[in-house]
Amino acid sequence: MAIEKFITTISRVVPIPIEEIDTDQIIPARFLKATDKKGFGDNLFRDWRYDKNNQPIADFPLNNPKYSGCILVGGKNFGCGSSREHAAWAIADYGFKVVVSSFFADIFKNNVLNNGVLPVQVSEAFLAKIFAAVDANPATELKVDLVNQTITLIATNESEGFEINAYKKDCLLNGFDDIDYLISKLPEIEAFEKKYKG
């Protein structure tokens, strides 16, 4: 069951310049009752996106028509809190391919990677630059190149490198899945078990 291959992405961005965005905000607990992975995008950022009467809150970036694209940009410590992979499913289901922040929570980072969404960690300074550029011109585009591990503000050609381990990069570029990989390693795992359990 391969994941979708990641290709170089050029897109406008949806900015949410708030720090400590926890997974309860990305997808509130009351929407975790589904038993499949589909449809979570409808409730992505539910309580920031809709008011008590389920009316869209006009100035929330997901509702604001001036923002669009498949790159979500959030403040520091994005995805902290609950381990719910539903947060990653919601982001992927909504159509985002890339999440950019200056800092990601560990479990969230694994979760998005396991769903073919690329977390791009940039410096505080570059993050501030992105927010400023999008604020000045919502049509600002970013280019995310996984092969060369760079993120670029197209208008100014300002660019920064980002880290990803070689294994995960290979998985994303080829659409490989950790579970298939582990299944291919079962003989080795069984040999380990034998020794480990004595």
């Binding site: 381990s83 719910r84 992979e85 539903h86 990653a88 479990i107 694994n110 979760n111 396991n114 769903n115 950790d178 579970i179 582990l182 299944i183 390693k185 079962l186 795992i189 078990e193």
Partner: peptide, 15 residues
């Protein structure tokens, strides 16, 4: 704590 993909990894391989 782990995500659901990782829960599935453990189901498949105990790893």
């Amino acid at each position: 704590g782990v995500g659901t993909s990782e829960v599935e990894m453990v189901f498949a391989s105990q790893c």
